[in-house]
Each structure stands twice: as structure tokens, then as C-alpha cells.
Amino acid sequence: ATNIVGKVKWYNSTKNFGFIEQDNGGKDVFVHKSAVDAAGLHSLEEGQDVIFDLEEKQGKAYAVNLRIK
């Protein structure tokens, strides 16, 4: 899925991951530091509006192509 809109539920910059809540009511999506770095960001803030693509690997969904809304 592409261009999914959501809000950062939480992001832990020490542990380098967090979760994004989808605006469409879907399951929360894992986001890793690598996606944050690829977006040219240092971190994510709770409540921040983002747009992302959804990829699945080994049955787990995660956010890629992250951008600030």
C-alpha cells in the first residue's frame, strides 16, 4: 500500500523504532530508524502527521518512504 496517512503514536530514538497510527483505522505500523534516516529526519515526534508506504516482510508490516505531511 502507498501514500498512507497517519500520526506518530510514539518513537524511541534510543531504541531506534516506534509506531505510526494509521488514520484509516488499520493496525499500528512499525517504523525503524532506517526509514527515519532515509527521510532525512533525525527523529519523529509523538502526534506528528506523516505519509508512508507499507511493506511486509516475514508477515510483519512496516513503514517505508516516510515523509512529513
Rank of each mutant, 00 (worst) to 15 (best):
Lys9Tyr: 02
Asp53Leu: 03
Leu66Trp: 00
Asp28Arg: 04
Asn16Met: 14
Val31Gln: 00
Ile51Ala: 09
Asp53Met: 04
Glu21Ala: 12
Asn16Arg: 11
Asn24Val: 15
Gly25Glu: 08
Gly26Glu: 14
Val50His: 01
Lys33Asp: 02
Glu21Pro: 01
Ile51Asn: 15
Ala61Trp: 11
Asn3Gln: 12
Gly18Val: 01
Asp53His: 04
His42Gln: 13
Ala39Leu: 11
Phe52Glu: 00
Gln22Tyr: 14
Gly18Cys: 02
Val64Ile: 10
Lys9Val: 05
Thr14Val: 14
His32Pro: 04
Ala35His: 08
Lys69Ile: 04
Trp10Ser: 05
Ser13Lys: 10
Ile68Cys: 05
Leu66Ser: 00
Thr2Glu: 13
Asn16Lys: 12
Phe19His: 02
Phe17Gly: 03
Lys57Pro: 06
Ala35Cys: 04
Ala39Phe: 03
Lys33Ile: 05
Ile51Pro: 00
Ile20Thr: 01
Lys69Asn: 11
Asp28Glu: 11
Ile51Thr: 13
Ile20Arg: 00
Phe17Gln: 03
Ile20Trp: 00
Thr14Ser: 07
Lys9Ala: 06
Gln22Asn: 14
Ile68Trp: 14
Lys7Tyr: 06
Lys27Phe: 14
Asn3Cys: 05
Ile4Phe: 06
Val31Lys: 00
Tyr11Cys: 02
Phe30Leu: 05
Gly59Ile: 06
Lys7Glu: 03
Asn3Phe: 06
Gly18Ser: 01
Gln48Gly: 06
Leu44Asn: 01
Phe19Pro: 00
Asp23Val: 11
Asn16Phe: 11
Gly18Gln: 01
Ala39Gln: 05
Leu66Glu: 00
Asp37Lys: 09
Asn3Ala: 06
Leu44Ala: 02
Gly40Ile: 03
Ala61Gly: 15
Ile51Glu: 14
Lys69Pro: 03
Asp49Ala: 15
Ala63Leu: 03
Gly6Val: 00
Ala35Trp: 04
Trp10Gln: 03
Asp28Lys: 04
Lys33Asn: 05
Lys27Thr: 14
His32Asn: 06
Glu56Asp: 13
Gln48Glu: 11
Lys57Ala: 13
Asp53Val: 03
Asn65Val: 04
Asn24Ala: 15
Asn65Thr: 05
Asn16Cys: 05
Ile51Phe: 13
Gly59Phe: 08
Asp49Lys: 12
Lys69Phe: 06
Gly25His: 12
Val36Gln: 02
Phe52Arg: 00
Ala38Gln: 07
Gln58Gly: 08
Gly25Arg: 12
Val31Cys: 04
Thr14Cys: 06
Lys60Ile: 06
Val29Thr: 13
Asp53Gln: 04
Ala38Ser: 10
Lys27His: 13
Leu44Ile: 06
Ser34Arg: 12
Thr2Asp: 10
Asn65Ala: 07
Gly59His: 11
Leu44Tyr: 02
Glu46Tyr: 13
Gln48Ile: 10
Ala61Thr: 11
Gly6Pro: 00
Val5Gly: 11
Leu41Ile: 15
Ala61Pro: 11
Lys7Ser: 06
Val50Gln: 00
Asp28Val: 05
Ala61Arg: 08
Phe17Thr: 02
Lys57Met: 10
Glu55Gln: 08
Asn3Asp: 13
His32Glu: 03
Ile51Lys: 08
Lys33Trp: 10
Lys7Phe: 09
Asp28Met: 14
Gly40Arg: 08
Phe30Tyr: 08
Gly47Met: 06
Trp10Gly: 02
Asn12Arg: 09
Asp37Thr: 12
Phe30Gln: 02
Lys7Cys: 03
Glu56Arg: 10
Ala38His: 10
Ala1Gln: 08
Asp23Arg: 10
Ile68His: 10
Asp49Arg: 10
Asp53Tyr: 03
Thr14Phe: 10
Phe30Ser: 02
Ile68Asp: 09
Lys33Glu: 04
Asn24Leu: 07
Ala63Ile: 03
Lys60Tyr: 15
Tyr62Ile: 06
Ile51Gln: 09
Val5Asn: 08
His42Phe: 08
Leu41Glu: 10
Ile4Asp: 02
Val29His: 06
Arg67His: 09
Arg67Trp: 07
Thr2Arg: 06
Gln58Asp: 11
Arg67Ser: 11
Asn65Leu: 06
Phe52Cys: 03
Val50Met: 11
Lys33Cys: 04
Glu46Ser: 12
Asp23Met: 13
Lys69Thr: 05
Glu21Leu: 15
Phe52Gly: 01
Gln58Ile: 12
His42Met: 12
Lys33Ser: 10
Lys57Phe: 11
Trp10Cys: 04
Lys9Phe: 02
Gly25Val: 11
Val31Ile: 07
Glu45Lys: 14
Val8Gly: 01
Ala63Glu: 00
Glu46Met: 13
Glu21Asp: 14
Val36Thr: 03
Ala63Val: 10
Phe52Gln: 00
Lys27Arg: 14
Phe52Thr: 02
Phe30Met: 04
Glu45Ile: 12
Asp23Ser: 10
Val64Trp: 07
Ala35Arg: 05
Val8Pro: 01
Asp37Pro: 02
Gly18Pro: 00
Ala39Met: 07
Tyr11Glu: 01
Phe52Asn: 00
Leu54Val: 09
Ile68Ser: 15
Asn65Ser: 06
Asp53Glu: 05
Tyr11Ile: 03
Ala39His: 03
Phe19Gln: 02
Ala61Asn: 13
Val50Asn: 00
Leu54Asp: 01
Ala63Cys: 04
Asn3Lys: 06
Val50Ser: 01
Trp10Lys: 05
Leu41Met: 07
Asn24Gln: 11
Val31Phe: 14
Ile68Gly: 09
Tyr62Arg: 13
Glu56His: 14
Phe30Glu: 02
Leu66Phe: 02
Thr14Gly: 08
Asn12His: 14
Gly6Met: 01
Leu44Ser: 01
Lys57Val: 11
Asp23Gly: 14
His32Val: 03
Val29Lys: 02
Lys27Ala: 14
Asn16Glu: 10
Lys60Pro: 04
Gly47Tyr: 07
Glu46Gly: 10
Phe19Asn: 01
Tyr11His: 01
Ile51Met: 14
Val31His: 00
Gly26Val: 12
Leu66Met: 06
Glu46Asn: 08
Ile4His: 06
Asn24Thr: 14
Asp28Tyr: 06
Val8Gln: 01
Ala1Tyr: 12
Lys60Asp: 07
Lys15Ile: 14
Phe19Cys: 03
Thr14His: 14
Gly26Ala: 12
Leu66Cys: 02
Val5Trp: 04
Val50Gly: 01
Lys15Leu: 10
Val36Phe: 05
Val8Ala: 02
Val50Cys: 04
Tyr62His: 07
Asn12Val: 10
Glu55Phe: 13
Val5Glu: 08
Ser43Phe: 11
Phe52Tyr: 07
Val36Trp: 03
Glu45Asn: 13
Gly47Val: 03
Gly26Cys: 05
Leu41Asn: 05
Asp53Pro: 00
Asp28Gly: 04
Leu41Ser: 09
Gly59Arg: 13
Lys9Glu: 01
Glu56Ala: 11
Phe19Val: 06
Val8Trp: 03
Gln22Asp: 06
Lys27Ser: 13
Ala1Asn: 11
Tyr62Asn: 13
Ser43Gly: 14
Arg67Cys: 04
Gln22Met: 15
Trp10Phe: 15
Asp49Cys: 05
Val64Tyr: 06
Ala38Pro: 03
Ala39Asn: 05
Leu44Trp: 03
Leu41Cys: 04
Glu55Ala: 14
Leu44Cys: 02
Gly18Glu: 00
Ser34Trp: 10
Glu46Trp: 15
Ala38Trp: 07
Gly26Leu: 14
Ile20Leu: 15
Gln22Ser: 07
Asp49Thr: 12
Asp53Arg: 03
Ile20Ser: 00
Asp49Tyr: 10
